[in-house]
Amino acid sequence: MNANAFDLGEGAPIITLRGIAKSYWRETLEIPVLQGIDLEIPSGAFVALMGPSGSGKTTLLNLVAGIDRPTGGTLEVCGHELNDLDDDELAAWRNAHVGFIFQNYNLVPVLTAFENVELPLLLTGLGRRARRERVAEALDLVNLTDKQWNYPRQLSGGQEQRVAIARAIVTDPDLLVADEPTGALDAKNAEEVLGLMSRLNTEMGKTIVMVTHDPKAAHQARHQIHLEKGVLDRAVEVNR
């Protein structure tokens, strides 16, 4: 089945993958992880990448996010051919266009919630005042203004993930990538985080690509793309 045939809705594609392949090498042994991926994801989509362990969903997410490079094929994300960018250009591109949400939040333990959210802005050239305003807005959006001076160890898991979301959106990226964002959360906090992501998608128009094993989490997405042994298997539109 050709993934191009997947109907992920209308709109200009923000992510275009053509013949993407990715292999890892263990000494002389080539281990293919992704093969011949063709995919277009329109701007404003909320896509859940699903599949069994080893199906290549996290690898696909990493490629889309520009933190890994394909061994074959081309990918254009947010208007940039990522293959053409060197490491430093790719880093600058990520800062401008991609927000990351990780399973384990990955906040810097020695920084307060405010400082954690401010981190990506240090690279933007914004002045101190402008940075503070942006951080305040982001923390307000995730409803954590009252916890802004708390350190990660003083926050619950759900609050930590909300800080991580604030950090992901503070640069106003076009694309949010989330790898198992609710994997370390209990049901209540998971629901809260998913609700927040849903709002970012519907109200702020952020394109979200999320890897998840959790059917409940996947249900928040508007489309589910299933991978099987490194190839796209099927796409499902979520009916709510």
Binding site: I67, D88, W93, N95, L119
Partner: peptide, 16 residues
Amino acid sequence: GSEIAVFRAMGFSASR
């Protein structure tokens, strides 16, 4: 190691 990876994911270049 993981924190450094997160920094780089956020856009910090390796040299920075």
